[in-house]
Design a protein around this nucleic acid. Structure first.
Lengths: 126, 126
DNA sequence: CGGTATCCCTAAGGATACTG
DNA sequence: CAGTATCCTTAGGGATACCG
């Protein structure tokens, strides 16, 4: 039934440049966010624990990533005022649903790592 | 037997900086690759058709993205020598498996778009 | 049509230092 | 501990032009 005009948000279309779902998709699949979500799928983490878990992430990027995910309603920030201060990050229901899908994807790629390596070698030596 | 060097790929771990699965995960979740994979999940596409489908991608990035995916063994490039020349892109078995997971994720986010928008508004006005 | 090559600029992102 | 702020570098990525 749709016409030939741009799709827009009447039906959420991840392929449409200005669709919210595309923006959310990009937030969620961005370099660090995807790993953070998978990590939080294993349980709640404190800032520095998460930083150690996600190998290679800088403080700045972790902080930024967590803010984006909190803004999109995927992550909850639980501040415990104490000494020393403590902040726990955990997934919302939606965040957990997203994390589950990303976990599936990560599992698949972990299982296919050798296949990918073979493909890369074949591609390199052609 | 492995030495006392960094853990490496004995167990593929998407959180480890130098693991093949992490590299593949990043290739697959990168800005354009994820959309290209979802698109190709719907069937094979020619270069310019794909470009129209994935709203906003430049020729350069589409070309680059397709090369990476071909290298990782996720996409096949089918060249039909003719006039005018024709190239069809399609998924490999592994590519299809990956695309399926990404489709799931995209579906979830398309369905949750309004929820994300609400979260963003709440976050903005605090 | 299906690209590659070049140019250029912005924004992603790392390192470091500092604050509550 | 849990971050922000600043600085700086690199690479992602768009526009354009051109080749098979």
């Amino acid at each position: 039934m749709d016409t030939d005009g741009p799709a827009q948000d009447l039906v959420a279309d991840v392929f449409a440049r200005d669709c919210t779902s595309r923006a959310a998709f990009e937030d969620v699949t961005s370099k660090w966010a995807s790993l953070v979500l998978v990590a939080l799928g294993e349980g709640s983490f404190r800032f520095n624990a998460l930083r150690r878990k996600v190998d290679g992430v800088s403080e700045k990027m972790l902080s930024q990533t967590l803010q984006t995910l909190e803004r999109d309603g995927l992550v909850l920030r639980d501040v415990v005022t104490a000494i020393p201060p403590r902040v726990e990050y955990e997934l919302t229901a939606l965040g957990a649903a997203v994390a589950e899908r990303l976990r599936d994807l990560a599992d698949l790629l972990e299982a296919s790592a050798s296949q990918v390596e073979t493909a890369r070698r074949d591609y390199a030596g052609r």
